[in-house]
């Protein structure tokens, strides 16, 4: 499996990363190198082996259903370029 220039542009667009036309070839090479490595890994027979999700035997931590956070709109909005009456303001997006 390998990617072409069009796929590189598409992946960049999906991730909303600006890629200059001159960078496409270089990125294509890097991505194909990664995919080549994955191809190599795929040679290992992992039939019946559970995917490893943690190096130590851990269980998903859970929290109780209690309100312990929030109530600080100012902090949430602090980094926003534009706000109005407690809302974030963003360039208009309408379907």
């Amino acid at each position: 499996m390998s990617v072409d220039a069009a796929t590189v542009r598409r992946i960049a667009h999906l991730a909303r990363i600006a890629v200059e036309e001159g960078e496409v070839e270089k990125l294509k090479g890097e991505l194909n190198a990664i995919l080549g490595f994955v191809e190599q890994l795929k040679e290992v027979n992992v039939e019946g082996v559970e995917p490893m999700t943690s190096v130590t035997p851990m269980q998903l931590k859970m929290r109780a259903d209690k309100v312990t956070d929030g109530g600080d709109a100012a902090a949430v909005l602090a980094n926003a370029p534009q706000t109005e009456e407690g809302f974030f303001l963003v360039p208009k997006v309408v379907e």
Partner: peptide, 12 residues
């Protein structure tokens, strides 16, 4: 989308 002429308002 209706509250502002050029911007959308977001409430999280």
């Amino acid at each position: 989308h209706e509250q502002h002429p050029t911007m959308s308002l977001v409430d999280l």
